[in-house]
Design a protein around this nucleic acid. Structure first.
Length: 402
DNA sequence: AGGTATTCACATGAAACTATTCTCTGAGTTAGG
DNA sequence: TAACTCAGAGAATAGTTTCATGTGAATACCTGT
């Protein structure tokens, strides 16, 4: 009896192509990080003095998405904590904060609130002056002797929204602390980030900089094959699958995360096909699916006004004859007619202009500012998504607008 | 013909406004001693 | 008198609106040849 069950379970387990899918998920932390030993060594040597209770230089990590920045710093963090000697007369704290998370992003206040939460305090979501939140942060941190390393991931996003005064405040925090010392580790996707901020901040924040270059196709292949060995059952990958994944991702500035996503989704698609192998065509399908899901998800979460503007663009796009382009004015006029139909307030042209620009940033449309001489100056708009995605998008929009 | 000046239809920026959420404070109210 | 309630003052944020200024090039207008 037990054997029978075993057989059933085994056959289920064997049926899929995955041995352990979580290996390919982005939150998985591998125990080794290939092709990043150089950077890890650098980080470690810069941060090492904290083990003796000395303040280290502030550190700044650059690199595009999926180049292993977060992974590397997390790795060093764990190692430092492991090696830290508890018997010393000070404490070591390393806090990691991703500034881009929805609940955190956007404001100085929220980042501080989140930091306070991490170090064991509590702060209301709103209603307090920012000053007092700072005071509280200092109070908590300075309650005992310790060294605090703050890892701020993707700060470029935040600083772009708020001013760089926030960073300035942070770097100056040390002078208000008596027992505790703070080291800041900034992580940025934008390589030009430090150039755009206040020189005072730059000099104190960028004392040490480490650049993470993109992975090339060979390195990606290496990473992928290492992970796929434990993630997939043996022999389910068709020849060249890994190479193709790597090539796709290498084209997108060497994003390892994307490569892994691609591989995982290709595997899922293969399972759905009841295919016993992951084939090359699954990679292509996965690539399309990722793109599509991303865009549709963005559209779905966009507020009503945005959707109406997008609907205007889509409708106008269908209506036009080939090679006719859409301009801001057209969209706004059409949008104005559309609003009453859905019982929505008409926004100003100024605002719609911004909305159009935001769609451009999201990659849903392509936009170019052109001047038609006496005919004025406006944006030339074209949809950047394929026909079948447009159909789905229309469906989604109709649903939310009812 | 060649050079300025205008002009269109927006783009782009900054500031101000609005609604909403949440805290904090202190006056007024209540209930128990 | 201590505990409780509740309105009003402030803070912060998101999403706009208002006001002001900027822009590229087709077109209108000169100018001297």
């Amino acid at each position: 009896m037990v054997n029978d069950l075993d057989q059933i379970f085994d056959s289920i387990a064997k049926k899929g192509v995955f041995k352990n899918k979580s290996i390919l998920q982005s939150n998985y932390n591998p125990e080794t990080i290939p092709h990043r030993s150089e950077q890890i060594k650098q980080i470690a040597s810069i941060l090492a003095p904290v083990l003796k209770g000395e303040k280290t230089s502030n550190l700044f990590l650059y690199g595009k998405t999926g180049t292993g920045k977060t992974l590397s710093i997390q790795f060093v963090k764990e190692e430092l904590l492991r090696r830290f000697n508890q018997t010393l007369d000070f404490d070591l704290r390393i806090e990691y904060l991703n500034c881009k998370l929805r609940k955190v992003s956007d404001t100085e206040y929220r980042i501080l609130a989140e930091l306070i939460k991490k170090v064991g305090g509590e702060v209301p979501a709103t209603g307090l002056p920012t000053e007092s939140v700072y005071a509280k942060f200092i109070e908590i941190i300075d309650s005992k002797k310790q060294i605090l390393i703050l890892i701020l991931d993707e700060i470029d996003q935040t600083v772009k929204k708020i001013s760089d005064g926030f960073l300035y405040n942070l770097t100056r925090l040390n002078s208000e602390l008596s027992k505790t010392q703070i080291c800041i580790v900034g992580i940025s996707n934008d390589l030009t980030f430090l150039d755009e901020i206040d020189p005072r901040v730059r000099s104190s924040l960028g004392e040490e900089e480490i650049v993470f270059p993109p992975y090339n196709a060979l390195q990606l292949q290496d990473i992928l094959s290492k992970r796929s060995e434990i993630a997939f059952n043996q022999g389910v990958l068709e020849d060249g699958v890994i190479a193709k994944c790597a090539a796709f991702a290498a084209r997108e500035h060497g994003d390892a995360r994307r490569a892994l996503d691609l591989l995982r989704i290709a595997g899922e698609l293969a399972e759905r096909d009841n295919s016993s192998k992951v084939m090359l065509k699954h990679i292509d399908e996965a690539n399309n699916k990722i793109e599509k899901d991303k865009i549709l998800d963005v559209i779905k979460t966009e507020p009503k006004q945005f959707q109406i503007v997008l609907k205007s663009i889509i409708d106008l796009n269908e209506r036009k004859k080939n090679d006719e382009l859409i301009f801001t004015g057209d969209v706004y006029n059409y949008y104005q007619d559309l609003c009453p139909r859905y019982k929505v307030e008409v926004l100003t042209q100024r605002r719609v202009s911004d909305i159009i620009q935001e769609f451009d940033m999201l990659g849903i449309i392509n936009v170019r500012v052109i001047s038609k001489g006496r005919g004025g100056r406006m944006r030339e708009i074209r949809l950047a998504i394929s026909k079948n995605i447009i159909e789905k998008a229309k469906h989604i929009i109709n649903e939310t607008l009812n």
